[in-house]
Design a protein around this nucleic acid. Structure first.
Lengths: 210, 210
DNA sequence: TAGATTGTTAATCGATTAACAATC
DNA sequence: TAGATTGTTAATCGATTAACAATC
């Protein structure tokens, strides 16, 4: 299954819809119109309807959208209706922060193991998750059905390790290293380039000032 | 000074140009044409020339672009030619990871202080940076010319603290909380929503599979 | 039935790519 | 001068917004 040909822009907005719908649900709201949601989210009602209709008619004329139903449908699209096993490769501060962030688990992303090449931290545990040596990567991925690897390594090591991860059967890489990975195109890469984000902030600071 | 009206898309690409030019510089390359750079970066040469010409004629016909010159010019645009004082508000694992990431300093982003409301960690030091109580925020921002606050707090506290930060004179917020901050529009907000990033990865995994 | 609101088509807007004259 | 490559205008493509008929 898979809806190919949905534009990047639409996909980028899905998690934000999901977040707002979750909040509405918590607040006990049963239904919402694209018009009301648009005011809440600061986007056009047209865009909301257009976006959602890429995936199917989730609404009903004269009524709007059922909050819980829409929330669940978007959850399915985002793959949050199932579990994803993750490993953290590179167990420095950032890797540990990710392993410590329990909220990911609520969405079905389970950190199963951590890895590092520094012997001094191998064997340590973070929230009950063991830090292992890089030599154990291959076996661990295979025997634990690991789907996603968070890559929190210095960029010098990132490229080589990413290649091995792919060889060991990883399907997606959550890449925090400042490098553009060149991998087979069936491997999904999601980049989080913190330093680029900080530079954009700085650009906007520089520009806003008079 | 400030070039208003440059599209978001262009600005988003600037740090990536900066990164590639830095690598070329390190490799000792003196000049590069838009054509060669386009092959390297996997974008069109047209886009590169179009992007750069938003800011000025950095190149030269028949020659191309001088790598070091272009690198420095983009650095200026990104505001990396000057220092930015930062505080980290919320000193949990993610806040500590940011404070520990020494690379930001090389770009002129200096973490001057950390803050938390948990008395157990107040007084601790991370890389020589002291964790202070929230009560000290106002004074510290004013007396240390703090420009940017990294907001690494649970979303329940984020909104309120963000408002105070603005009151104390912060100009930019690097927001890691899963919330859309509503702030005066002269305040620059750069969002890093990790869980949304992870959901996009998951979406793409779900879609790619056959 | 009348009112509300979707789903969807058409119009507009903006961003990317192509083309080429200017010029080093 | 001839060749290379930019800066920039024009053409294309895609995404957003507006409009409205369908329908609950």
């Amino acid at each position: 299954m898979g809806k190919e040909g949905i534009s990047r822009a639409v996909i980028k907005r899905l998690p934000r819809y999901y977040r707002y719908l979750g909040e509405l649900m918590e607040a006990g709201q049963e239904r919402i119109s694209s018009g009301d949601l648009s005011k809440l989210m600061n986007v056009t009602a047209s865009q909301i309807r257009q976006d959602l209709n890429n995936f199917g008619g989730f609404g009903q004329q004269g009524y709007g959208y059922n909050v819980e139903y829409l929330y669940n449908e978007i959850g399915k699209l985002l793959g949050i209706d199932r579990r994803h096993n993750i490993i953290v490769v590179g167990s420095g501060h950032l890797g540990q922060a990710i392993a410590n962030y329990a909220n990911f688990e609520r969405r079905g992303f389970i950190v199963k193991g951590m890895f590092d090449k520094n012997p001094e931290i191998i064997g340590k545990e973070i929230r009950g998750i063991k830090i292992m040596s890089m030599e154990e990567l291959g076996d661990f991925i295979k025997s634990n059905r690991i789907e996603i690897a968070a890559l929190t390594l210095p960029k010098q090591q990132a490229e080589e390790i990413a290649d091995s991860l792919v060889k060991y059967g990883i399907k997606g890489i959550w890449n925090f290293a400042h490098i553009d990975l060149k991998l087979p195109k069936d491997i999904v890469v999601e980049n989080v380039h913190l330093s680029e984000s900080l530079m954009r902030l700085s650009y906007n600071l520089t520009t806003v000032e008079k």
